[in-house]
Write a protein that binds this DNA or RNA. Sequence first.
DNA 1: TCGATATTGATAATCATTTTCAATAAGAGC
DNA 2: GCTCTTATTGAAAATGATTATCAATATCGA
Lengths: 155, 155
Amino acid sequence: MKKKPQNLISQKWEILLSQAGYRITQPRRAILDIIAESCRPLTPVEIYDLARARSSGIGLVTVYRTIEKLEELHLVDHVHHLGECQTVFRSSDHHQHLLICTNCGTSCYFDGLEVEEQFNQIGQQLGYEVTGHWLQLAGLCEDCQKSHNSKKVPE
Amino acid sequence: MKKKPQNLISQKWEILLSQAGYRITQPRRAILDIIAESCRPLTPVEIYDLARARSSGIGLVTVYRTIEKLEELHLVDHVHHLGECQTVFRSSDHHQHLLICTNCGTSCYFDGLEVEEQFNQIGQQLGYEVTGHWLQLAGLCEDCQKSHNSKKVPE
DNA sequence: TCGATATTGATAATCATTTTCAATAAGAGC
DNA sequence: GCTCTTATTGAAAATGATTATCAATATCGA
């Protein structure tokens, strides 16, 4: 069993799960790593397949349950994108928004948008008290701009 | 059978469906009316229940199929909100964004946001070519502000 | 009015997610 | 390191949402 250098994010997640009273198991560790390392939102089944490739014998149920716990601790978010509603992506620690590649899914967080005041004004005009907003950008990442349609979704 | 004054939106929708080669049937008409009249996004089952209340004997399948056609003609959009991903709401004819009440779901479209240029800049910084954005505001509508202020409880 | 056929609702099939449950393994205490 | 409690596991079954099948029906152009 080779020891691979562990992802910083999943290391942090393990500590947080542990502190929350959850146990760190082999399947859970594999799932954590996969989500933490991914540069794009993944579906439960995608996570399941990737986890199986690493250490066989992981059940899809365990994927769902692990996502549930990560969600509870606000370590991942559900991302809605191109019809998909159940893809999971590591969350940002501070309030940021996602920019997603429409071709390969590769995602980046960004911030520094100064629109809060505008949002409040819009709300006022319509009689609403604005309490939150949800913004997502879509586009083509650097690689996909070059290779255009030739590239398929990476595994 | 009393003749109720028909909603302007569903009237328009009937014409468009007809022009697209689809037939206008009783069940379809009921479903159109319900979606067109609704001030908030509805799930297929909600539409189904409301349609049944009007004219019994409508199948849930017909609801799905009608939504499908409305979607195809870009007359309704899927709205993602509070865990729900399959709620349907009449779309805006020009490019606008939704402001949704987190309590009752009542929704309004708004526009006039000048952030396109900012979005492009953000994309450039991250190496993306921004092609679209998705923005939704959440808040409390006028009515819900009143009924909420009386029992405001901090979490 | 007639007739081709799009549409219908009931039923069955599919797919995603959740629940159940006995076996297993994590990790705290010794 | 060893033991014991119990959280976690995977398989299988149950649930829920959506889609496909199909014979009967209703629409709408001719």
